[in-house]
């Protein structure tokens, strides 16, 4: 009796998206952090439009990256603590499939809402009119890498109490290429140069992360179950 794997995948996906937006979930937390942190930059730097628009793309990208990191902390830890990681390990999908479903759920439930409100934050930050479309495109292409790479860090630190800082140290250096190409694409668009090279490289990083992420996460989770 082979279980329909697609249905199991969808069940894990729906479960995690549901939990992200239920009480104590990470969805609202990441979104509020994103809004507040970007606004703080506007207050801190001052209202000069030239300064704000100069740093707009960088600030939005960095804060999106931190919001993503903040929410990844609990990706596997909640399941590890209540024992449901054991159940997930025995699902017919296997741990790599479960990790893939959980990463996709994280991106859809936590990261996608951030991308959807970036036009509003671009307005706060006086982002140049030519930058909006490319900013959203670069976030759409680049942020999957953040979820995928972050998942490896989350899986490695799952059994560490307060592993959040350790996870940040592990993962942040790996976020550098995504950040450089993401901000580079927006800057290129603002300078009337084609952003395609940067977007292509951003896509390449995400594709590499897609290959490695679920497998490496599963291997790290297997260590945590021991």
């Amino acid at each position: 009796m082979a279980a329909p794997l697609r249905s199991v995948f969808m069940a894990v996906l729906a479960r995690d998206m549901r939990l992200a937006w239920s009480q104590g979930g990470t969805g609202t937390m990441a979104l509020s952090f994103f809004l507040i942190a970007v606004t703080l930059f506007a207050f801190g730097v001052g209202p000069e439009p030239q300064v704000l628009s100069r740093i707009a793309a960088g600030v939005i990208w960095v804060v999106a990256l931190l919001a993503c990191l903040l929410s990844l902390d609990r990706l596997y830890q909640a399941d590890f603590e209540d024992g449901s990681l054991d159940d997930l390990a025995l699902s017919p999908l296997g741990l790599a499939g479960v990790a893939g479903a959980k990463i996709l759920a994280h991106w859809l439930a936590t990261v996608l809402p951030l991308i959807l409100i970036t036009p509003l934050l671009g307005l706060f930050m006086h982002l140049g009119a030519d930058g909006y479309l490319v900013l959203i495109a670069s976030l759409m292409i680049g942020t999957p890498a953040l979820s995928l790479i972050g998942s490896i860090g989350a899986a490695l630190t799952v059994s560490v109490r307060r592993g959040g800082v350790l996870m940040a140290l592990l993962v942040l250096p790996l976020y550098v290429p995504t950040l450089i190409f993401g901000v580079g694409a927006v800057d290129a668009a603002l300078n009337m140069v084609t952003p395609m090279e940067n977007l292509a490289l951003l896509g390449a990083v995400s594709l590499v992360a897609l290959v490695i992420g679920p497998i490496a996460s599963a291997a790290a989770l297997r260590l945590a179950l021991e």
């Binding site: 069940a11 479960r15 104590g24 979930g25 209540d82 024992g83 449901s84 999908l93």
Partner: peptide, 27 residues
């Protein structure tokens, strides 16, 4: 396998927990 931890999500009802578990284990 059922160990010392109950694997229940406290934010969800027992029905939701059970439905999710059944779908994850059997599809």
């Amino acid at each position: 396998y059922a160990g010392h931890d109950n694997g229940l999500k406290t934010a969800l009802t027992l029905r939701e927990n059970s439905e999710i578990y059944a779908r994850i284990m059997t599809g």
